[in-house]
C-alpha cells in the first residue's frame, strides 16, 4: 500500500530546550485508520501539529501525497483536515457561518448543498443558525469535525476525538470514522482510550518521550504481544501439581481449586489440547473453565513499562 503521509527523521525542540520529538520516521498508508498512542506529553499532538503546519519542525521532512509540507504547503494542506483536541470555536458565530469559513480557508468554492449534507450527517443542521456557544459539548465536538470535513479532505487528523464525551457519542464518532474510511479518507487518531484504538485502528504507533517505539499492524501486535489465559476450576482441590504437568506454564491457586494456564496468543490450540490430555491422564477432573485475552491496553502498558 502506498504511503499518503511520509515522515522522515522528524525532530522538534521547543524554545526553552524541551525536546518533543526525536528522529521520528513514519509512513501512513492511504485509506487506513492509524492510531497514535502514548502517554500525556509523549509528543502526539506535536507530531500532528507539525504535519498540519501549526508547529515548525526543527529537523526532518514530511510529505502528504508526495507534496512537501513546507515547500509545497498549499497542495499538502489542502488534503488535510484537523480536529484538534481542544474545543476551539468562535462561540459567537453561527454553526453554518463557521463551517463556511472553514471551507473557504481551504480554497474551496462555496457549496451550501455539501455543507447542508455534512451538517445533516452530523445531526447539526437543525442548529445551523445557532451561535456555537449555545451548543452542547457533544454538538461542539461534532461542529469541530464538520469544520475539518468542510473542505472534503483526503486525510483527517483526530486529536483525542472522544476525550470527555459520553459512551453514546463515542460510539457515534466511531461509526462516523468508519464511514469516512469507507469513503476513502485516511484517518490518523490519537487517543487515550485504548479500547478506541482496538476497536477501529488498522495499525498502531506507540510514542513515548518523543520517540516512536513501535509501529505495527494491530492484529499482528495483539497476536505477537498478546497473552491468553485459561483458568480451570477443578472438581477436587489439589495439594500440589503432579510432575506430569510441570512442562506447562501452570499456576495453582492458594486453595488448590483453580489452575491457571498462560500462553501466547498466536500459539494456536495445540498447547491447550495437550494440557487437557495431560490433566485427563493425571486423573484431574475439571468442573468449569474460562478464558481471558489481553487487550491492547494490557499490551500498551507492557510496552510503555518495558521501555521506561
Amino acid at each position: 500500500m502506498s504511503p499518503i503521509i511520509s515522515v522522515s527523521h522528524l525532530s522538534k525542540t521547543y524554545a526553552g530546550g524541551r525536546v518533543a520529538l526525536k528522529d521520528v520516521s513514519l509512513e501512513i498508508n492511504k485509506g487506513e485508520i492509524f492510531a497514535l498512542l502514548g502517554p500525556n506529553g509523549a509528543g502526539k499532538t506535536t507530531l500532528i501539529s507539525i504535519i498540519c503546519g501549526i508547529v515548525t519542525p526543527t529537523a526532518g521532512q514530511i510529505s502528504a501525497a508526495g507534496h512537501d509540507i513546507i515547500r509545497d504547503y498549499r497542495a499538502a494542506r489542502a488534503m488535510i483536515g484537523l480536529v484538534p483536541q481542544e474545543l476551539t470555536i468562535d462561540f459567537f458565530e453561527s454553526v453554518f457561518a463557521t463551517v463556511k469559513l472553514s471551507r473557504g480557508l481551504f480554497g474551496k468554492k462555496p457549496d451550501d448543498a455539501y455543507l447542508e449534507s455534512l451538517l445533516r450527517d452530523l445531526a447539526l443542521w437543525d442548529r445551523k443558525d445557532s451561535q456555537a456557544r449555545t451548543l452542547s459539548g457533544g454538538m461542539k465536538r461534532r461542529l469541530m469535525i464538520a469544520k475539518a470535513l468542510s473542505h472534503e479532505p483526503n486525510i483527517l487528523f483526530l486529536d483525542e476525538p472522544t476525550a470527555g464525551v459520553d459512551v453514546e457519542l463515542r460510539r457515534g464518532m466511531w461509526d462516523l470514522v468508519r464511514k469516512l474510511r469507507a469513503a476513502g479518507t485516511t484517518i490518523i487518531l490519537t487517543t487515550h482510550y485504548l479500547e478506541e484504538a482496538e476497536e477501529m485502528a488498522d495499525r498502531v504507533g506507540v510514542i513515548r518521550q518523543g520517540e516512536l517505539i513501535l509501529v505495527e499492524d494491530k492484529k499482528r501486535l495483539m497476536q505477537q504481544l498478546g497473552k491468553k489465559k485459561l483458568t480451570l476450576a477443578l472438581s477436587a482441590p489439589l495439594a500440589a501439581l503432579p510432575a506430569s504437568l510441570h512442562a506447562f506454564a501452570l499456576s495453582l491457586s492458594d486453595d488448590g481449586s483453580e489452575l491457571t494456564y498462560t500462553y501466547a496468543e498466536d500459539g494456536g490450540t495445540a498447547p491447550v489440547a495437550a494440557l487437557l490430555e495431560s490433566l485427563n491422564a493425571a486423573g484431574i477432573g475439571i468442573a468449569d473453565l474460562r478464558t481471558e485475552q489481553s487487550s491492547l491496553e494490557d499490551i500498551f502498558v507492557g510496552l510503555i513499562g518495558k521501555s521506561s
Partner: peptide
C-alpha cells in the same frame, strides 16, 4: 487577536493560505 485568544488560529495556520 480573537482567533488567537479562542484558539481558532489553528485553522488559519493549517490552511493553504499564505
Amino acid at each position: 487577536y480573537f482567533p488567537r485568544f479562542v484558539g481558532t488560529i489553528y485553522e488559519i495556520l493549517s490552511a493553504p493560505i499564505s
